[in-house]
Simulated assay, not measured.
Amino acid sequence: MTTRLWAILPAAGVGRRMGSAVPKQYLELASRTVIEHTLELFVDHARIAGVVVALGVEDGYWEATAYATHPKVRRAPGGAERCHSVLNALAALDGQADADDWVLVHDAARPCLRLDDLERLIDGLLDDDVGGLLGIPVRDTMKRAGSGERIDTTVDRSSLWHAYTPQMFRLGLLRRALHEALEAGDLVTDDASAIERLGLAPRLIEGHADNIKITRAEDLPLAHFHLQRQGRI
Rank of each mutant, 00 (worst) to 15 (best):
D127C: 11
R114H: 03
T153S: 14
L29A: 04
Y61V: 01
M18D: 03
L173I: 05
R114D: 11
D140E: 13
A49C: 03
S20T: 13
L93M: 09
D123Q: 02
L187P: 01
G19Y: 09
V73P: 00
T69R: 13
Q230S: 07
L29R: 09
A54R: 00
P10Q: 01
I8M: 13
I151S: 05
N211C: 11
L220R: 06
I233E: 06
P221N: 10
G78M: 04
R150C: 10
V52A: 09
E119H: 12
W161I: 04
T215E: 15
L227S: 00
A91G: 03
A92M: 04
A49T: 08
T38Q: 07
R4V: 10
S20L: 13
L187A: 07
R229N: 11
R229W: 07
T2H: 01
R203I: 04
P137Q: 05
A11F: 00
L118P: 01
Y26F: 12
T33R: 14
D152V: 01
L93A: 06
P23T: 01
A92C: 04
D101Q: 06
D44Y: 02
V138F: 08
D101L: 13
L5F: 14
D128C: 06
R32I: 06
A21S: 11
L174V: 09
I151P: 09
D98S: 02
A108C: 09
V103K: 06
T33N: 04
E218D: 15
A163P: 03
K24D: 09
A80T: 05
T69W: 08
L125F: 12
G15E: 13
A97V: 12
S147C: 06
R144A: 09
I35T: 03
P202N: 00
T3W: 12
G131A: 01
H179S: 02
H224V: 02
H106S: 14
K24Y: 12
M142I: 14
V188D: 14
L93R: 02
G146F: 07
G172D: 10
S158G: 02
I233Y: 03
S31C: 06
A184W: 07
T141F: 04
S158K: 09
L200T: 08
L55P: 12
R114G: 12
I205G: 00
C83G: 08
V86K: 04
K143C: 15
Q96A: 12
N211S: 05
R144H: 02
G78T: 00
A192W: 03
A49K: 08
G146H: 10
R170Q: 10
M168I: 09
R4G: 15
L178D: 06
L227V: 00
E183M: 10
T153A: 11
